[in-house]
Design a protein around this nucleic acid. Structure first.
Lengths: 252, 252
DNA sequence: GGACGGGCTGAACGCGCGTTTAGTCTATTG
DNA sequence: CAATAGACTAAACGCGCGTTCAGCCCGTCC
């Protein structure tokens, strides 16, 4: 407990050998986690950083704490990068741009590994992408480029989760030869899905409005019970209740 | 090597104590893998099946071989269930139906775990869903319910990967309290995304056809080189070449 | 100059893993 | 009835893991 207090050593009053080794270990861990997932061993990370495994524990207390430190670091990067990222999060093109920049690639890899493992970083990463997309979508709607939605928040959330989920699944199903080369993976993803995506975005999928209208009618006048547990309070905005749609989805 | 020859004992000529124990182990393994992922230990599986860990190895040779046997079993189920499944794979409603049936739930869980791990079962599972969706989409287009696409194969592939990927990411980000209850997870997924999905499917997202037309023009008259490696031979049908779309995507 | 304390290491500990080994039990076979 | 073969187990092996321990090195403080 007392050893995990970085900087501010009290008696000595200043950083004795600056925090460089600790940082080097954390950087190596981020890189290794991004490359090999969170199953990577402390020994491997120590070897990457050129130190002994014991030192890793000495500085961070445990592997779990190291993981948390990496999460914090990447999270801080995500928040920081928000300031200088210029738009277009919808189609995953923001990711494309990021993956091309070698400096960002490992951090992106870390985020992807987190998405597969499903930790706090994953949720935060997704939430930030949703927030960004919300801004850009709002602008695009105001500019008349994008059609308005019955529930803007739900739409932007769905579109973001859809884009990220599709990317994730594509990467999992046929991983690129070099797992580090996320640029290649995202490029493949883009070339494969760009056409059907803009086609869907342009003309939709269904020929009639019936299914949508039926469901909207159903929402405004729910038939009876079927009350479900809502997962989170911070997501649904307009939909007062969205029970099992099976009853209205009488397609074909 | 010689011990890994199941059935057909030659001299004895018939199943001595029928294959029930072996099957029981395999069933326990499928269940445990579905519940806890493929990191589950042989000891746990053995305990679930009520046998010693050594017997698991005795019957299957290794954990990896057991994993393969489970894959085979689930794969055979997927192929078999194809015969009696009636449609609507697009929105994941097929999954919804399946998850409600308790008998299918563990096998669905196994498939989801495979999707996260990305093995052969995952690819097969996705491919079967794509094949099914292809049939139903073709019918729906013929019936005038669904708009035709420039590239039907690419569209159905994208839509399937998108639906599954979104589901997978949703499940990863906030996993249901009881990880076995896939019905609950899929229900949550449906209620959360049904509205934005049919809205997108009904009216699209963009107000103008410009992006799509630009890209189609670009496809028919590619500017220069930028030749990429195609991932698989059995997927792309109409798109002769789909290079980096960055040049045409000059939105905003 | 001696005490001190943090950075750092090599060696070891305990644990859970997949797997092996040696052997028991049981039921079939000649 | 003796031989045989396969189902099955208890115990142990070897390995890699996260972590601990004892101690070295070296710069700082009284």
């Amino acid at each position: 407990m007392s050893s995990t207090n970085p900087g501010a050593t009290g008696t000595t009053g200043r950083p004795p050998s600056d925090g460089s080794t600790r940082d080097r270990i954390r950087d190596a861990a981020v890189l290794r986690f991004a490359r090999s997932g969170f199953g990577a061993s402390v020994r491997t990370i120590a070897a990457d950083a050129g130190v002994s495994p014991a030192l890793v524990i000495h500085h961070f207390g445990s592997k779990e704490a190291l993981h948390r430190a990496c999460d914090d670091f990447v999270l801080r990067w995500i928040v920081g990068s928000k300031r200088q990222n210029m738009g277009r999060a919808t189609g995953g093109q923001l990711l494309q741009v990021m993956a091309e920049v070698d400096e960002y690639a490992p951090l992106l890899g870390y985020a992807v590994q987190s998405l597969q493992a499903g930790g706090e970083v994953a949720r935060a990463f997704v939430q930030h992408m949703i927030d960004d997309a919300q801004v850009y979508t709002r602008e695009a709607v105001a500019d008349g480029i994008v059609k308005p939605s019955v529930d803007e928040d739900a739409r932007v959330r769905y579109l973001t989760l859809s884009a990220l989920g599709t990317l994730l699944l594509t990467l999992t199903l046929d991983p690129p030869e070099d797992p580090e080369d996320f640029a290649a993976g995202i490029r493949t993803f883009t070339t494969e899905h760009y056409l059907p995506m803009i086609e869907l975005f342009t003309q939709g999928f269904l020929t009639s409005r019936r299914m949508l209208d039926d469901y909207l009618l159903y929402l405004s006048d729910p038939p009876a019970g079927t009350r479900d547990a809502t997962t989170d309070g911070d997501v649904a905005a307009d939909t007062t209740a969205a029970p099992d749609p099976e009853t209205t989805s009488e397609e074909r």
